[in-house]
Each structure stands twice: as C-alpha cells, then as structure tokens.
C-alpha cells in the first residue's frame, strides 16, 4: 500500500518547471567557465544546479507516482484555484505588486496607507472605520520608530515627494 500523500493540483507542472529551471541553470553555470579547471568559478554553481536537476527529477518522479486528488468533479485548474490560488490570495498578491511599484512613485506613507486599507478590505476586515484608524495608527508608529530608532530613510516618492513636508520624509 502506498503511503505517499495525494498529488496536489499543479504539482506535476510545478515539478516539471523545477526540472526545466534546474537544467537551464546547469547550462548557464556550465557557460561560466566550462571545464577550464576543476576549481574554476563555474564548478560550484554547476554542482548546485546538477544537484537541483537530480533531486528535481526525483521529486517529479514522486509527483508522477502519487495518485491525484480524489475529487474528480473538478478540473485540475479548478482544484488549483481553490486549493492554492484562491481569488483572495491572487488579489492580495496583486495588491502587494501594486504596493511595491507605488512605493517609489507615491512614497512610503501614501502607498502603505492605501495598501493597508485595500488589503484589509480584500482579506475580509469589513469595519472600514476601524481599518482607517488602525492603518493610520500603525503607520504612524512604524514611521516614528523606524525613522527615529532605526534611522531608516523611507522612500518619499518621485510624484508626491516634492510636495511632502520635510518631517514626513
């Protein structure tokens, strides 16, 4: 009797990607200094990528041998969305990407406040007034603590920076 856990949706594709990535990295590592010398700069990356390729193939084999999830009423894609990438998660990651991009443009304070409010809403904290206050309070604390105690220079933003008062930079 097999004791392997069932295969997760998308696992086979992920393992295949892992193998392809490892093979690509092995080739890239090989191109660093080919087989010039046994102690050349490319040897260690080649060893790592080679190990990744071998263990990646082993993991692919394990995933191949594992039985798929018992629920056959849904397609693999549907199962993937439900189990690994639900809408909330995708929206949250999209908000993080937007936040990272906005940091440089609108600055830390504005982008963080907008990110906090929107992500709290997306994740299910429906009390808007509480969200407004908690975000403002926490941001204030982060700003004060990190600007003063940790001397961290936070991004002022190329768009809003010139109009932001000095003490908020």
């Amino acid at each position: 009797m097999s004791t392997n856990p069932p295969r997760l949706p998308g696992e086979l594709s992920f393992m295949a990607l892992v193998v392809v990535f490892s093979a690509f990295m092995l080739w890239t590592s090989f191109r660093i200094s080919k087989f010039d010398s046994i102690s050349s700069p490319g040897v260690f990356p080649m060893f790592c990528a080679g190990l990744m390729l071998v263990t990646g193939l082993m993991s692919l084999r394990q995933a191949w041998k594992a039985s798929p999830s018992a629920d056959t009423h849904q397609t693999v894609f549907q199962q993937f969305v439900i189990q690994l990438a639900p809408l909330k998660l995708i929206l949250f990651v999209a908000l993080i990407v937007g936040y990272m991009l906005a940091l440089e443009v609108t600055g830390f304070l504005f982008s963080s406040y907008a990110f906090l409010l929107m992500s709290m809403q997306v994740l299910g904290s429906k009390k808007i007034v509480v969200n407004l206050w908690v975000s403002a309070l926490v941001l204030f604390c982060i700003f004060i603590v990190f600007r003063t105690a940790f001397s961290v220079v936070l991004p002022a933003g190329s768009l809003l920076g010139p109009y932001t008062p000095e003490f908020l930079k």
């Binding site: 963080s112 906090l116 992500s119 941001l139």
Partner: peptide
C-alpha cells in the same frame, strides 16, 4: 488586519 501590517514591515 495583521497580515497586511507584516507585509508593510517586510517591505520596509
């Protein structure tokens, strides 16, 4: 409430 706060701290 907690998760977005950790994210902001991580970014900083």
């Amino acid at each position: 409430v907690l998760l977005p706060l950790i994210l902001v701290l991580s970014a900083v």
